[in-house]
Simulated scan of single mutants.
Amino acid sequence: MGGQRQLGDFLQTRRARLRPEDVGLPDYGERRRVPGLRREELALLAGVSSSYYTRLEQGQSVGASPEVLDAIGRALRLDESELRHLHDLAGSAKRGAVTRRPPAEHVDASTLELLAALGDVPALVSGRRSDVLAWNPLGHALFAAHLDPDSPSSPADRPNLARLVFLDAHTRALYADWPAKARAVVRNLRMVAGRHPDDALLASLVGELSMRSPEFATMWADHSVRPCDSGVFEMHHPLVGTLTVTQQSLRPPGSEERLVVLATAAPGSSSQAALYLLAQATAAEVEAGSSAPAPNP
């Protein structure tokens, strides 16, 4: 995904969002040809030479030290997630990463046990590229009841959460504020891309979504980054109606790539009642399926 280019684009977009008055610089009422701070102004704030910063933004210098990157991050007023992303991009640009196809992801037994223990809570396990590696029955019923419940078990057929959000009409209709959910997905995917610039499958996913979804392409070009740790979303479920859930992502012990995504509702709320109804309907469906007679040989 071009480490040097990604680094330069990120720096440029973060610089463009700052105005002189945001950082205490006078603008003397002058008209600017481009939005945001000039390169020389940013360099001054970061304590580096204008020529050095220009080379860094243009991808002609890839040896910035952690201290210099921290200074630039402070000048750009980056938050913790953005600063980590800056270091990831600078590291990948310096290494000159070679794109390669990673092995298929899997879920270990302890994570599957955790998923089973969350029977009354909608939950799924997502991988590095937001592939659904596993889900419990209630997680399937809430997030993707229109899909085959066994699809995560086959690497070739696994649903992908980013594809669902941008390309699947059912998932799009599921979220009352779809743009907010879409932005959360893109920001998280940006962070992952910065950490894994050599992931060919991730690069292919980004390329596919950029080609098939103009909305994804626009959001991706913004270079915003933020992990999908937690978010509150109103959902319009076709079976139980409108409910508001908090979606949280937890990282299992010893795992840098997988996330357990949970959906919970406020105690005593109508949303919690809706989840209870969905759990009852799901349990009844599972029981009916298990009691069905086996086909004749």
Rank of each mutant, 00 (worst) to 15 (best):
L239H: 06
I72A: 08
T171V: 01
Q280I: 06
W220M: 04
V206I: 14
L78M: 15
V23R: 05
L142K: 01
A116K: 11
R212T: 13
P122T: 01
L69V: 08
V107E: 03
H170R: 08
Y28F: 15
G119M: 08
A203E: 14
W135C: 02
G24V: 00
A273H: 09
D177H: 10
A265C: 07
G268W: 02
R55D: 08
D157G: 14
T264A: 08
A104C: 09
R172I: 05
T54I: 11
P253N: 07
R258H: 07
L11S: 14
S224Q: 10
V132A: 01
S210A: 15
P214A: 04
L25P: 00
A180T: 04
P152K: 02
A116E: 15
P155E: 07
W178K: 02
P252I: 01
P159A: 09
L56E: 05
L138K: 05
T264P: 00
M211F: 13
A109I: 08
P122Q: 01
L277M: 08
P20G: 05
V62F: 04
R251C: 13
H223V: 11
E82N: 04
A116D: 11
V185G: 08
A217F: 12
R163F: 05
L259W: 08
S230G: 06
M211V: 12
A162I: 03
Q280R: 09
Q272L: 01
A64Y: 02
S126E: 14
Y175S: 09
A217T: 13
T99D: 14
S151A: 15
A43P: 09
S153A: 15
P137M: 00
A144N: 12
L76V: 15
V98E: 09
T246R: 14
M219W: 11
A173G: 12
G73E: 12
R129L: 06
A281Y: 05
K94C: 06
V261H: 13
D229A: 12
